[in-house]
Design a protein around this nucleic acid. Structure first.
Lengths: 130, 130
DNA sequence: CCGAATCCTCCTGGATACTG
DNA sequence: CAGTATCCAGGAGGATTCGG
């Protein structure tokens, strides 16, 4: 015996994961979308605002800054007037497309199941009440 | 021309993604960990609390309920006393291990790079100031 | 044009205490 | 044991305005 079932869970199985970095910053609202926007090449600040539905500048800035700190994007400011700034994916940022693709594939394959299950949960026992 | 670079971004590229379901509920704090806890077989409520560092019951309950609504876990209550409830992964929930594995693989491969970049960002131009 | 500064709202997650 | 009921703090995200 001692298969992989029903042994006690290791209390330390997430030992290093509780306080340490929370799975990077991909889980937030905008990072993944920005990455997709940059896949086709460098983009300007205002260019990014368009598909992001006019995301307000503070949020876009803070998201981009965080991505820059993590080495996912590079920021290039051209000393012109009016100013021009371009954001581009770094190799590290580009490497994120793989796990992102895996997540997208899962969504494409199983999102209908989730939606179905979710809707079914909102029908509280049709048979018993009616 | 018309390569895949520097064409204007499609303003509707996230058309269906803004209001609709936000990439399921995997991005939250506990769902992924719960899935990992359930990989080895069904677990009881209190069993889950252990590796989750004594997560408070309200949060665990709400997370599990959400996962149940989405069809990721099943909940089985045994009519005994004292009560016993077991949570188990559904096939749908188990299918999430694939994208999760892709994300874990990325972390394992690139987290050092991220940390390095992050630390470098906290050293504000050593050369210029000293 | 690219942000910085300010203020605000909501929601996640948490602490604690109590019940069937 | 397996939750529910309150109350609460913090932070992400947003609206708006102003500056270089």
């Amino acid at each position: 015996m001692l298969g992989n079932v029903t042994e006690p869970l290791d209390p330390e199985m997430f030992a290093g994961c509780h306080e340490s970095p929370p799975l990077i910053r991909i889980g937030d609202k905008w990072t993944a979308k920005i990455i997709r926007c940059l896949e086709s090449g460098p983009r300007r600040f205002s260019e990014l605002q368009v598909p992001l539905r006019g995301i307000n500048p503070k949020v876009l800035t803070s998201t981009l800054r965080a991505m820059e700190r993590d080495g996912l994007v590079s920021r290039t400011a051209y000393p012109e007037v009016p100013p021009r700034v371009e954001y581009a994916l770094t190799p590290l940022g580009r490497s994120l497309r793989e796990p992102m693709a895996a997540c997208c594939a899962w969504s494409a394959a199983h999102l209908p199941d989730v939606m179905e299950s979710r809707e079914a949960a909102y029908q509280p026992a049709r048979r018993a009440s009616a």
